[in-house]
Design a protein around this nucleic acid. Structure first.
Lengths: 196, 196
DNA sequence: TGTTTTTCATACTAATCAGTATTTTTTATG
DNA sequence: CATAAAAAATACTGATTAGTATGAAAAACA
């Protein structure tokens, strides 16, 4: 990778970490260039505006990460019900990057940016649609394989699972411990088993 | 009500509306006093800091509103299952103040403030605990009345319902229309009926 | 090697931010 | 009505914000 491409990626990664923990609006460019050891000139050479950088984070950091961790594994799925549970459980309890205190990066950005910034909305919607479509697809395959009831409606379930995930992330932030996660996961398991 | 108490409440109400639509951090005090037609001197006479005002909004606006609209009605409940559905459905589709585009005020504040501001966290946690406790209580009564299965665990269901609500609010923000609400509500109904 | 283009560095600007100091007006109370 | 206290108005501060102007170093290329 060229040196220039390297500083660009470096900015994106560090900025993403700051934004994940602090929020987008309260993460200043001065703070980003301080932690990246990159000058303002370099920053604005790579990104015209702060928002352009924000969208780049979604497309170049969040999207590939999600593809790799949530989309790909599900495609080779045998038992969707178990996969769904494992996916959420992994995200809540095991993912080494995510922290209870800071919630879900995608959820955070959606909450903060969506009403006022269409560029962010579009980038985030694309991301979430991808995830949703994967779940729906998984359900259809599960129905064919006889693992999921025929009257289950994939879109409904997808919304229900993802909503629950985003919501419980908020509870985690509120309590700053994963006890709410554990309670939630038990009910999720019951709900998912009800789809069989 | 005294004139002073009136300006205080006026500030709280207008500030709340601004914060609901724009977020807390991006709502400036200058903006608040501009829309309230109150001077900075008056503002800082009533509130020592911006954060003190924020907490006051939670305790003096959000809390009473929630008490009135969600806690009280549920206490005289006959059929908790139906009540839960109606509560969420009302919030999503009918509440005249809440807007799809701006999500849930409590959820927004939790997301934005919680990792860094303990005063906000405490005030919000109190609010949410109250709501959660009401749901749990409702479920216990439903179990006694034979309307809900005995093996249903109230706390799990409470987390599940509230998480789903917060999460779907985020989807609404993302898409800026209530189509996702409608899909979600169908699945919620199915889930709730499964508790019978 | 010389020149052009890419990449980065430095110093600045105008706007906005939360909060303060000080004074004036309004209200309550004797 | 006089006085004290409460409430509000005005003008300011220092810090921080995103973004810019301009020039220097580094890399690519002829």
């Amino acid at each position: 990778m060229s040196k220039a491409a390297n500083t660009r990626l470096n900015i994106l990664h560090k900025a993403f970490e700051l934004i994940y923990t602090k929020g987008y609006q309260t993460t200043s460019i001065d703070e980003i260039i301080a932690t990246t050891q990159v000058t303002k000139g370099a920053f604005y050479y790579h990104f015209k505006t702060k928002d352009e950088m924000g969208v780049a984070i979604i497309e170049e950091i969040l999207k590939p990460t999600m593809q790799e961790h949530f989309i790909k594994p599900t495609e080779a799925s045998q038992d969707p019900i178990e996969d769904f549970y494992n996916m959420i459980s992994y995200l809540l309890l095991e993912d080494p990057f995510l922290q209870v205190k800071y919630g879900c990066p995608v959820g955070n950005l959606t909450q903060e940016m969506t009403p006022w910034n269409t560029k962010f909305s579009e980038a985030l919607a694309e991301l979430v649609d991808l995830w949703k479509a994967t779940i729906i697809n998984s359900i259809e395959k599960g129905k064919e394989a006889g693992l999921i009831r025929k009257d289950v409606i994939g879109e409904q379930v997808a919304f229900f699972i993802l909503s629950g995930y985003w919501g419980i992330r908020n509870f985690g932030k509120l309590q700053n411990d994963n006890s709410s996660y554990l309670v939630y996961l038990k009910e999720l398991k019951g709900y998912l088993n009800g789809l069989k």
